[in-house]
C-alpha cells in the first residue's frame, strides 16, 4: 500500500497528491510517469510525475476526474492509501542526458495546457536547478483552472498565463500566445508542449510554421505501461511506437494526432457509463447522451 502524505484540491475536479513511494522517488526523473490503482477493482491509471522528493521518498501526482476510478481517487484524503503505485515508467525527458553546457546555450519554451501544467513543472524545475531559465506558457479555460501558479513562477524565466475566456493573463489560446512571442522577436530553440491532445496538435502546427522543434508528452490509453499490451501504440512518422516504452515524449511534428485522438476515445462511452453509474447509481435511465442508454 502507498500512503498519501498530502492531498489537496488545486481546482475544480483537479487534485494534487504526494504519495509515499520510495522506490519510485529514488529513481524517477522529469518526463516519466507512474501507474496508480486505487483498490482491487480500480483501473490502472497512468499519470505523469509532477514532482518528487528523493530524501522523503515522496512522489507528487495530479489527478483530474475523468472516469469512475479517477473520481474515486479524488475522494481520497491525506492518510488514505493507494493499493498500487508503480514506476517510474517511460523515458526521462531527453535534456536530462544532454551536456549541461550545451543545454545552457538553448532557449526552451514550455507550454502547459490544463492538467498538462503538472508534468511541465518538474522539467522547468530541473532546468532551474541546473542554472537554466525557461519560459513557460500556461493555458486554461478560465482563471480558476490555472494550477501550480506559485510553484511555476518560482522556477520559470518568463511566465505567461493564458485563459480562453480572458479572465486572467493573456486572453486567448496558448497557440496565439506562442505566435505573439514569436512576433515580438523571441527566439526559442526547443518547445515542449504538454496538455490535451487537441492542444498539443495545434501547438505543433503553430511551432512547425514557426520552425521551432517541439516535443510532446503523449498520454494515450494504457493498461500495463511496460510494453505488454500495445494499447498505447501510435504513429510517429511512418513508424508505430508504444508511448509507454518508446515515449512518452516524442517529436510532436511527427505525431499523427487525429489517429491518436480517435484511439483515445475508444473507451469514452464506457468510462462515461461507469462514472454515471457511480454518480447516479440506479436512478440514471439514459438520455444523457453519454451512456448510450
Amino acid at each position: 500500500m502507498y500512503r498519501i502524505h498530502k492531498a489537496k484540491e488545486l481546482a475544480d475536479k483537479i487534485f494534487l497528491m504526494e504519495v509515499e513511494a520510495p522506490r519510485v522517488a529514488k529513481r524517477c526523473y522529469p518526463g516519466q510517469f507512474v501507474i496508480v490503482k486505487i483498490d482491487e477493482k480500480g483501473e490502472r491509471i497512468p499519470l505523469t510525475i509532477c514532482d518528487y522528493d528523493r530524501e522523503k521518498g515522496l512522489v507528487t501526482i495530479v489527478i483530474q476526474t475523468i472516469g469512475a476510478s479517477t473520481q474515486r481517487m479524488n475522494s481520497l484524503k491525506t492518510g488514505d492509501e493507494f493499493r498500487d503505485f508503480v514506476g517510474p515508467l517511460g523515458n526521462p525527458s531527453e535534456f536530462i542526458f544532454e551536456d549541461i553546457e550545451e543545454l545552457k546555450k538553448k532557449k526552451y519554451l514550455f507550454v502547459g495546457g490544463g492538467l498538462g501544467t503538472a508534468p511541465v513543472y518538474p522539467q522547468v524545475k530541473w532546468l532551474k536547478e541546473h542554472g537554466i531559465d525557461a519560459d513557460v506558457i500556461v493555458g486554461a479555460k478560465t482563471k480558476d483552472l490555472i494550477i501550480l501558479e506559485e510553484e511555476m513562477k518560482k522556477v520559470a524565466g518568463n511566465y505567461y498565463p493564458c485563459t480562453d475566456d480572458g479572465s486572467y493573463g493573456f486572453a486567448g489560446l496558448v497557440t496565439a500566445k506562442i505566435e505573439e512571442l514569436a512576433a515580438q522577436g523571441k527566439h526559442y530553440d526547443v518547445c515542449v508542449a504538454i496538455g490535451p491532445m487537441i492542444m498539443m496538435k495545434f501547438a505543433c502546427l503553430t511551432t512547425k510554421k514557426l520552425g521551432i522543434p517541439t516535443i510532446v508528452s503523449m498520454n494515450p490509453t494504457m493498461v500495463d505501461g511496460t510494453g505488454m499490451c500495445g494499447a498505447c501504440r501510435l504513429h510517429v512518422g511512418e513508424e508505430v511506437k508504444f508511448a509507454c516504452v518508446d515515449g512518452p515524449e516524442f517529436d510532436g511534428h511527427l505525431i499523427n494526432f487525429d489517429e491518436a485522438m480517435k484511439r483515445q476515445r475508444m473507451y469514452a462511452t464506457q468510462e462515461g457509463k461507469a462514472l454515471l453509474k457511480l454518480q447516479e447509481g440506479d436512478t440514471h435511465h439514459g438520455g444523457c447522451g453519454v451512456c448510450a442508454g
Binding site: 483501473e43 500495463d224 505488454m228 499490451c229 500495445g230 494499447a231 480517435k262 476515445r265 475508444m266
Partner: peptide, 20 residues
C-alpha cells in the same frame, strides 16, 4: 493496425483476466 478496435491478444486478455 492502429485503428480503433484493433487489439493485441495481450491487451484484450489482460483487460479481461487481470483487470476483470
Amino acid at each position: 493496425e492502429t485503428a480503433s478496435g484493433v487489439f493485441s491478444a495481450n491487451e484484450y486478455l489482460t483487460r479481461s483476466n487481470l483487470m476483470k
